[in-house]
């Protein structure tokens, strides 16, 4: 069996909160954005990472490229552990991975033509073939018409800018594309085109995708595997059909039921989950979702559940996973409480 493309073991990313005067005062408290994330990403896989704002999904994508403050934990690239967490140790990954930013236009140099924007990663990687025809071929693969190559970033529409960003991501022939909210801000009539493009690229080049999104409906349609994050921890992981058919974690179910259904006959009588995501600097004790969970018991308030495998492709971090203990009314058995 070949090693997975990327594996993280107990990856911790943290920041110090507030401004620290040099030499003055005690160090500010550390805030863990990712308090220990273990995840594997296989070759040619489309993995969707889903979570609300502040769940650490963007941070994870950045951490893989050495763009976040990794404090501890291991990162393995094709089976080899990176020596340390210094930025330069991540170079082997950076050479083979590309990042698609949330807002493509602001990620382009406004004074470069799209042609040279696309060619730049190729030049830096030392690849040959930065001529007009090669760049036009790259653009064509991303569905960007060749006449757009002589334009500047501001002269592209939203959909065209996404395609230009995809062409740039493909430019250094990566094994992994990390896409941060690739469809946010795109109209529904064009977002399908971008997602189709991802699937085409995976099919023709075996590129793996880490897609960071808050859009569950999109994740369901394109992911091989979905990971649900809450406050920087994986709460559930599984294949889309299974995950949607029977969510095991109450948070997953809350997310699924929160998404407004485009069918006026299926209106909800009340919001499925109350309250808001707690601040990451004040993580709740025990299970971090217990403050909003309709099924929280004493055990949940005291002990944090660990992520455990339910089957070969499914794992959940919950003391009382839904499908196993849910009664017909959808309520958890209360006798397990206390």
């Amino acid at each position: 069996m070949t090693a997975p493309l990327i594996e993280t073991r107990n990856l911790v990313v943290s920041l110090r909160q507030g401004f620290q005067w040099p030499l003055l005062g005690s160090p500010k408290p550390r805030v863990d954005i990712l308090p220990g994330l273990s995840l594997t990403l296989r070759h040619g896989e489309i993995l969707c990472m889903v979570g609300e704002s502040g769940s650490g999904k963007t941070t994870f994508g950045k951490a893989l490229l050495g763009l976040a403050n990794v404090v501890s934990g291991e990162v393995l690239f094709e089976g080899k552990t990176l020596a340390d967490h210094k930025s330069r140790s991540f170079r082997p990954i950076r050479r083979r991975a590309a990042l698609l930013f949330q807002d493509p236009v602001s990620s382009f140099d406004p004074r470069q033509r799209i042609r040279s924007v696309i060619a730049e990663p190729r030049r830096i990687a030392g690849l040959t073939g930065t001529g007009h025809s090669e760049i036009a071929a790259l653009a064509a693969r991303a569905g960007l018409p060749a006449q757009m190559l002589d334009r500047f970033a501001h002269a592209l529409s939203g959909g065209q800018a996404r395609r230009a960003a995809v062409a740039r991501a493909l430019s250094a022939e990566p094994s992994l594309i990390i896409a941060d909210e690739p469809t946010a801000g795109l109209d529904v009539s064009v977002q399908g085109g971008v997602l189709n493009l991802f699937q085409d690229i995976r099919a023709s080049q075996g590129t793996a995708f880490l897609i960071i999104t808050h859009n569950l409906a999109v994740a369901r349609l394109i992911a091989d595997r979905i990971v649900i994050l809450y406050l920087g921890r994986v709460v559930e992981e599984g294949e889309p059909d299974a995950l949607f058919a029977a969510p095991l974690h109450p948070y997953t179910r809350a997310l699924l039921h929160s998404e407004p259904v485009p069918d006026p006959m299926k209106r909800r009588s009340k919001p499925p989950v109350l309250g808001e995501v707690p601040a990451i600097s004040r993580r709740p004790q025990g299970c971090e979702f217990h403050t909003r969970c309709p099924h929280a018991a004493d055990l949940c308030r005291a002990v944090a559940p660990s992520l455990s495998a339910v089957s070969a492709t499914r794992s959940v971090a919950c003391h009382f996973p839904l499908a196993t203990t849910r009664t017909d009314t959808g309520r958890l058995m209360t006798r397990t409480a206390g």
Binding site: S189, Q191, G192, N196, A217, L221, P240
Partner: peptide
């Protein structure tokens, strides 16, 4: 085109 209204995962998404 609305992803939430697409029942089955087919190959390509409509645009």
């Amino acid at each position: 085109c609305e992803p939430a209204l697409i029942r089955e995962r087919q190959g390509r998404l409509p645009v």
